[in-house]
Every structure is written in C-alpha cells, then in structure tokens.
C-alpha cells in the first residue's frame, strides 16, 4: 500500500512527467487497447463523429473508423445486449452509456445476462465486457441525468464495479477492465472529466479490487468514493489546521470491496466516516459500515460510525438545492470534527 504524505496533493500521484485530464486519460486507455487488440471495439450513443456526450471518445472514430467506434441507435437495452453477445463470441466491447441514469433502460442485459451468464452456464463462458457510466450530480441536469447508481450494480454478483477518482486511476482501471475476462462497470464522475493529473504514457493497470490510501492520518478514517475523495481531501486539509489528522481512503472498487484496507485503517484511527454521493440509505456506506461492524476493527471503535450520503430525494435542478443534496466539503468537516472530538 502506498502512503501519500499528507502534504502532497492528489494531483501529484504517479509519474509526474505528464498531465492529462480524466477524460483524456480514459480516451488514451481506449486508444491503447484498440491499437493493441483488434477485438476491442467501442459502442455507444453519439460516440463517433460527435465524440460522445462528454467528448470522452473524441476523435477516436478518425483513428479507428466507424466499424470500431460504433454509434448505436438510442437503444440502451438492445445495445447492451449486442455488447453482451459480442463479448461472448470473441470481441472486447467497451459500451458507453451517455448518462449512468440510462443504465435503468438496460438493466435486463446487465443484471440478468452479463452478470449471470458465466455462472448460469456452469462456467462454460466468460463475458469480457466493459461498460462506462458518466455519473453524478453537479451539472444542473436534474433528476434523470445526475444519479449515482453504482450501488445498484455493486449488489449483483458477477459484475465488478469501480469508481476512478483520478486521471491516473481512470486510465489504469479501464486498461485493467479491458483485460479482465468478466464484466466490469466503470462509474466515471462527470465533474471529474476536466480534472487534470499525472498520467504515465503507455500501458499500465490499476487493480480492480484495491482501495488506495490517499492521505495518511491518525485521528479518523474517511472512506470516500469518486469525487468525494477530493472533497474528503479538501476537508482533511482544513481539519489538519485544527490539529485533526484524517486518513482518506479512496475505496475505488465497490465490488469486490477491499475490506482489509479499511479494517486496518480503522484499527489505527478508531473512527470511521463514510462519504459517498449515492443516496445514503442502503448505499455503499452501509456496506463499509457493516464491514467494520463485522470485523475485528469493531472493538477498536471509539465512536459510532458516521455516514454522509446523498439526500433521500431525487436530484433537484436549482443549483443550491442540488449542492445541498450531496455531501460538500463543509459537511465533511463538520461530521469529521464531531467524530474526532467525541461529540458523536
């Protein structure tokens, strides 16, 4: 496990030679995989000439042609099914949903087919499929274009579910997902697409089953996902000025979940705060909390476990309402202070 000194900022992780944005890092991963393996194809709505709703596929159609950068009709269910069938029979499709919310239109193929085919058929097949989901709020797109549904899919055995928080991880997790024989669901945060960070050139992978400690600390553990990792790091910097050292763990993988890293951290810090954008109830924080409650770390707890998650409401349009619906840096500071100062 790499410990990142508290003074280092998240952007400094990895090879410092070059910076790319999160979306450029994803695009580079796809291009590398497509160059290396003719079986890799991209499918999705408006990913060709348009370049994707968030310009993640960009100009790839000019490099690889429309046979490998395939615009699908607006048919999420059928398109996902075609990707499943292609993965079963020799291709390595990367399927882009325009918004993660549209996974709801394709749940049948994701949950009943992609996730279960290998098991249902007694191990006779694999489904090497990658699905990319632009997720999260903060763009003013309201309730049907802002959700964080990763916990839904993380509830399904047979799928792997990851949430990259940095450009480095966005590339490394995607390359790992493409190489993986099983269906991997990647939830990308829309507000991170423009974020820049160090990204090494060439091929590398980030494991699909390991959390990462982004900042070491002794007073409490903050387990965060996706954009909340950055908010937790900002909160941790403010807490440090109050003399409270928060350890920030980027959970990174929701299925499988890296319980060992969390348990070891909580045994050191004795306090746990979970921060995630998905709706709080029955979200990933519930699983992290339960993992601690069921582990030897339970006896080390000096305070109740705390969770900060999305509001119990659809995402609203008004910017202030929208912000109020998901954890912000001040919310994390307040909760962490209460936890560290024994007020919980």
């Amino acid at each position: 496990m790499t410990f990142i000194p508290a003074s280092e900022k998240i952007l400094d992780i990895g090879n410092p030679d070059r910076e790319l944005s999160y979306s450029q890092a994803i695009q580079e991963a796809m291009a590398l995989a497509m160059e290396a393996d003719p079986r890799v194809i991209l499918m999705g709505e408006d990913i060709g000439t348009y370049g994707g709703a968030f310009q993640v596929t960009g100009d790839l159609i000019h490099r690889f042609g429309e046979d490998r950068v395939m615009d699908t009709p607006i048919s999420e269910l059928g398109g996902a099914g075609v990707a499943v069938g292609a993965a079963l029979t020799g291709l390595r499709p990367i399927f882009e949903f325009q918004f993660s919310d549209f996974a709801t239109l394709a749940m049948e193929q994701i949950v009943n087919q992609a996730a279960k085919l290998r098991y249902m058929l007694g191990g006779a097949v694999s489904v090497p499929l990658v699905m990319r989901f632009p997720a999260g709020s903060g763009t003013g797109a309201a309730a049907q274009h802002s959700q964080s549904l990763e916990a839904w899919l993380a509830h399904v055995p047979g799928l792997k579910v990851v949430q990259p928080a940095t450009p480095y991880d966005a590339k490394g997790l995607l390359l790992a997902a493409i190489a993986d024989p099983d269906p991997v669901m990647i939830f990308e945060h829309k507000l991170l697409y423009k974020m820049k960070g160090a990204v090494p050139e060439g091929h590398y992978t980030v494991p699909l089953d390991k959390a990462e400690i982004r900042r070491a600390g002794r007073d409490l553990t903050i387990v965060a996902t996706s954009i909340m990792v950055h908010r937790a790091l900002d909160a941790a910097a403010a807490l440090a000025e109050e003399g409270i050292e928060a350890e920030v763990i980027d959970l990174r993988s929701l299925r499988p979940i890296d319980t060992a890293t969390i348990v070891q951290s909580v045994k050191r810090t004795h306090r746990l705060l979970c921060v995630y954008e998905g709706v709080k109830t029955l979200g990933i924080g519930a699983e992290v909390s339960a993992a601690i409650a069921e582990s030897e770390a339970f006896d080390f707890l000096d305070a109740p476990i705390a969770r900060l998650g999305g509001a119990e409401a659809p995402l609203p349009y008004n910017p202030e309402l929208e912000k109020a619906s998901v954890p912000q840096v001040p919310d994390i500071i307040v909760s962490a202070l209460a936890l560290a100062q024994g007020r919980l």
Partner: peptide
Amino acid sequence: ADPSKGNLGANGIVGGGIPIAVGAALSA
C-alpha cells in the same frame, strides 16, 4: 447452452437472447 457447438444458451428472460444473437453476428 453448449458454446462448443455455437449454442449460446436458452434464456429465462423473454426476448433476452435476441440482442445477444445480434452481438454474436457482429462478432462474426
């Protein structure tokens, strides 16, 4: 199912196999 004979499987979901067959045709 018997992938060795090209049988990608019966399916418990009505209509579930139809897009999968299209995907297999795409591979072919």
